[in-house]
Amino acid sequence: MRPFLYSRADGLDHAVQLAREGARPIAGGTNLLDLMKLQIEAPERLVDINRLPLGGIEPDGEGVRIGALVSNSACAADERIRRDYPVLSRAILAGATFQLRNKATTAGNLCQRTRCYYFYNIDTPCNKRRPGSGCSAIGGFNRIHAILGTSDACIATYPGDMAVALAALNAQVEITTAQGRKRHVPVRGFHRLPGDTPEKDNVLEPGDMITAVALPPPAGGRQIYRKVRERSSYAFALVSIAAVVRMEGGKIAAASLAFGGLAHKPWHDPRIDELLAGAMPSDALADKAADLLLEGAQGYGDNDFKIPLARRALKAVLREATGDAA
């Protein structure tokens, strides 16, 4: 770990000012501290935002506003979240461990960095860690890597679960900019594809601070978070699916699906939601949805299995969501 300056923000303005000057905000630190110990990141200055008034889960019109500092544990346990947005609660509980969820925050989780093996090893090239040095995962061991939206520069995935559920729920990220203005970015557009700038995980600009996540009015329906992994806990998703599906008269009235473990961002394809809306559920429909999902899928060797796995997981989720559990 390199020496760094640490200061505690005494207000949002102060935090934004320090962030504008290049300080990295730290809340739970469950990811950043690891990255600093391994010198994957070496910020010269940290601004501790834990004492800012960014906690609380509050009504927001017909929706809900989740403060940036709400811990994952608190969010997953919140009565309203469990009742009206169960997919979010389930996704959070599918991630990490009790200890980590107690520390991890809503905003921090959105900013969680990839778990690409090569990103974590500073003795190997990685375009995300050191732009221009090359991608070791292409041609290397890439079992956990992306099959959608990849580039020649990077095939890393966004590893989180919470954001996948937020993408299915079409939540908005509330950001306070370096200039002190507020802007809202849909979660579906918050993370980005690597392109030729994989060092940028998301659309945050220097000095931007996430202050909350806003959930739209409850969508109802059946809400499922399905996470596929070889061990039952404390493992990142090989493939995950967040599904919000409302049935009416045997037909799918509305559906919203998002996918984790497949891309550099939670994957949402509006064509899938459109295909499902108004359709009679069937295996053929699930296959069509999978065709859309996997249209541009590309395996890199060790992760080829994610293509059939995503298809089968999608079939399982749609059967469960539309009433035919097995």
């Binding site: 778990r115 093996y117 070889e230 061990r231 039952s232 806990s233 404390y234 493992a235």
Partner: peptide, 10 residues
């Protein structure tokens, strides 16, 4: 994190 031992749930 990435060398997977069984966890309690397993």
């Amino acid at each position: 994190a990435e060398y997977h031992l069984p966890v309690n749930l397993d």
